[in-house]
Simulated assay, not measured.
Amino acid sequence: MAIAPALIDRHGRTIRYLRVSVTDRCDLRCRYCMAEKMTFLPREQLLALEEIALIAERFIARGVTKIRLTGGEPLVRRDAIDLVWRLGRQVGHGLDELTMTTNGTRLAEHAGTLADAGVRRINVSLDSRDPATFRHITRHGDVAQVLDGISAARAAGLAVKINMVALKGLNEHEIPSILEWAGTNGMDLTLIETMPLGAIDEDRADRFLPLTEVFETLSQRFTLIRDPHSSGGPARYWRVAETGARLGLISPLTGNFCESCNRVRLTTEGKLFTCLGHEDQVDLKAAIRTGGLAAVDAAIDAALAAKPARHDFSVERGAAPAVGRHMSVTGG
Score class of each variant (00 low, 15 high):
residue 179 L to I: 00
residue 203 D to E: 07
residue 180 E to G: 05
residue 177 S to K: 06
residue 191 L to R: 06
residue 152 A to G: 11
residue 179 L to G: 06
residue 205 A to R: 13
residue 149 G to H: 09
residue 170 L to V: 15
residue 166 A to F: 05
residue 160 V to T: 09
residue 165 V to L: 01
residue 155 A to W: 00
residue 154 R to H: 09
residue 201 D to Y: 11
residue 153 A to G: 03
residue 152 A to C: 14
residue 196 P to I: 11
residue 146 V to P: 04
residue 177 S to T: 11
residue 145 Q to N: 10
residue 198 G to H: 12
residue 190 T to C: 10
residue 161 K to C: 09
residue 162 I to W: 01
residue 147 L to C: 09
residue 145 Q to V: 13
residue 189 L to R: 07
residue 148 D to A: 15
residue 161 K to F: 11
residue 171 N to H: 03
residue 164 M to E: 06
residue 146 V to W: 01
residue 142 D to T: 12
residue 200 I to L: 15
residue 202 E to N: 06
residue 162 I to M: 08
residue 182 A to I: 10
residue 171 N to E: 06
residue 199 A to H: 15
residue 197 L to H: 03
residue 167 L to E: 01
residue 141 G to D: 05
residue 180 E to L: 15
residue 148 D to I: 00
residue 192 I to W: 00
residue 176 P to S: 02
residue 198 G to W: 12
residue 143 V to D: 01
residue 158 L to A: 14
residue 150 I to A: 11
residue 181 W to S: 08
residue 185 N to E: 02
residue 180 E to H: 15
residue 147 L to M: 14
residue 156 A to D: 08
residue 165 V to R: 07
residue 163 N to W: 04
residue 172 E to T: 15
residue 187 M to W: 03
residue 173 H to W: 11
residue 200 I to C: 13
residue 140 H to W: 04
residue 185 N to P: 01
residue 187 M to A: 02
residue 205 A to E: 12
residue 150 I to G: 09
residue 198 G to F: 05
residue 175 I to D: 04
residue 168 K to M: 02
residue 205 A to I: 10
residue 186 G to P: 14
residue 162 I to A: 02
residue 158 L to F: 08
residue 181 W to L: 12
residue 187 M to P: 06
residue 137 I to R: 04
residue 190 T to D: 06
residue 171 N to D: 11
residue 175 I to Q: 09
residue 153 A to S: 01
residue 201 D to P: 14
residue 139 R to K: 13
residue 200 I to N: 12
residue 165 V to T: 15
residue 166 A to Q: 04
residue 190 T to P: 01
residue 184 T to I: 02
residue 168 K to H: 13
residue 189 L to T: 06
residue 150 I to F: 06
residue 137 I to G: 10
residue 150 I to E: 06
residue 171 N to C: 05
residue 203 D to S: 13
residue 141 G to P: 03
residue 152 A to E: 12
residue 137 I to P: 04
residue 158 L to M: 10
residue 205 A to G: 09
residue 149 G to S: 07
residue 182 A to W: 03
residue 156 A to C: 11
residue 194 T to H: 03
residue 192 I to T: 00
residue 191 L to E: 03
residue 171 N to L: 03
residue 165 V to G: 05
residue 179 L to V: 10
residue 162 I to H: 00
residue 171 N to R: 08
residue 152 A to T: 07
residue 182 A to S: 13
residue 200 I to G: 01
residue 144 A to H: 06
residue 144 A to K: 02
residue 205 A to M: 11
residue 203 D to A: 07
residue 160 V to M: 08
residue 173 H to I: 13
residue 191 L to K: 04
residue 165 V to H: 10
residue 163 N to E: 09
residue 182 A to N: 02
residue 193 E to C: 06
residue 195 M to L: 13
residue 176 P to A: 11
residue 197 L to F: 07
residue 205 A to Q: 11
residue 141 G to H: 07
residue 189 L to E: 01
residue 200 I to Q: 14
residue 183 G to A: 11
residue 155 A to E: 15
